[in-house]
């Protein structure tokens, strides 16, 4: 990303091919060098360290045993607990992504259509939760969702049959908490696309007799699709690697891959196994991201003429 920007900005458009060949390489490279160094030092090197760690062994009395083996990966391939956690992680991430898109896109559209003075306020209300720590927000849900919590008390007072329900430590609570945390990301990303939407398009659709619903479906939606797809991808990646919300609302029973990594690193002290889990999670998310861009995002954008 950072490498592409300076090139577009700086490559002299009228330069001859020969001059371009001489200057194109070093300038962008030099300009992106600080970013590359920071990225390399703060992201790639540690990741490499984690990857290397995952090939080592572990013994509690002697600690980490050096060596190169695939034993950790072989163990995870056989481990039904890991399979369960991996399946749960991706199931939850998919559901959360779908819900966030279903909620976030209309939300952004509604806010976009508001009078300017309400718009700013409402945007602040939506984004506000991002200003509060995830841990605090999740604690709020714990208070609401408990057997004696507000929600159950309200349902009891309304005489809803079956109340009180057990909501804490269920996947329902986990999904609810994650959606609350993630919706603003979709709203923001769609909001940015809406800002680039030409108002004349809407008037044109209206003048040609399109209904409100048809305008939204056939004019607005295609135009904000990059924002929707980008927001969805962001939510998916963050939900799949979320740690605090699953740990707090799901409890120890509902393990996700991130909480398994935590346990191996901090409780069992088996760092190499924890590293192997982390590497697998990274690869799984990376694969899902690539598949998403290839199978959904790119065809969708191409069909809409945006890419």
């Amino acid at each position: 990303m950072s490498a592409a920007l300076p090139r577009e900005a700086l490559a002299p458009p009228a330069a001859t091919p020969a001059r371009r060949a001489r200057f194109r390489l070093p300038a962008p490279f030099l300009l992106s060098l600080p970013a590359l160094l920071a990225l390399g030092g703060a992201l790639l090197l540690p990741l490499l360290g984690v990857a290397m760690l995952s090939f080592q062994g572990f013994d509690f009395d002697t600690g980490i045993t050096p060596g190169w083996s695939l034993a950790n990966y072989a163990e995870l391939a056989r481990d039904s607990l890991f399979h369960e956690a991996l399946a749960r992680t991706f199931r939850i991430a998919l559901i959360v992504t779908a819900l966030c898109v279903l909620l976030g896109v209309p939300e952004a559209w509604i806010i976009h259509r508001m009078a300017p003075r309400w718009r700013g306020l409402m945007l602040l209300v939506v984004v506000g939760p991002l200003l509060v720590s995830v841990v605090v927000r999740t604690f709020g849900w714990m208070v609401l969702l408990g057997t004696n919590g507000l929600l159950n008390q309200a349902m009891l007072a309304l005489g809803i049959p079956g109340a009180p329900f057990r909501m804490m430590f269920t996947e329902f609570a986990l999904i609810l908490g994650l959606v609350h945390v993630m919706v603003p990301l979709v709203v923001l990303s769609v909001w940015a696309s809406l800002g680039r939407l030409d108002p004349a398009l809407l008037r044109a659709a209206e003048s040609l007799g399109a209904s409100k619903a048809a305008t939204f479906r056939r004019v607005v939606l295609p135009n904000i699709m990059p924002g929707v797809l980008g927001g969805a991808l962001m939510v998916f990646c963050l939900s799949a690697s979320a740690f605090a919300t699953p740990a707090m609302l799901g409890g120890k029973r509902l393990k996700v891959v991130a909480s398994m990594t935590y346990t191996e690193f901090l409780n069992t002290l088996n760092w190499p196994l924890g590293a192997a889990i982390a590497v697998l999670l990274l690869l799984a998310i990376l694969a899902a991201t690539l598949l998403w861009t290839r199978l959904v995002e790119r065809p969708a954008l191409r069909r809409l003429g945006a890419a």
Partner: peptide
Amino acid sequence: VLAYESSPGKMSEMFTSGE
């Protein structure tokens, strides 16, 4: 078992809320 909980703070909280 409702939950396996290692943190003393959360354990106290679950006792006080009647959970």
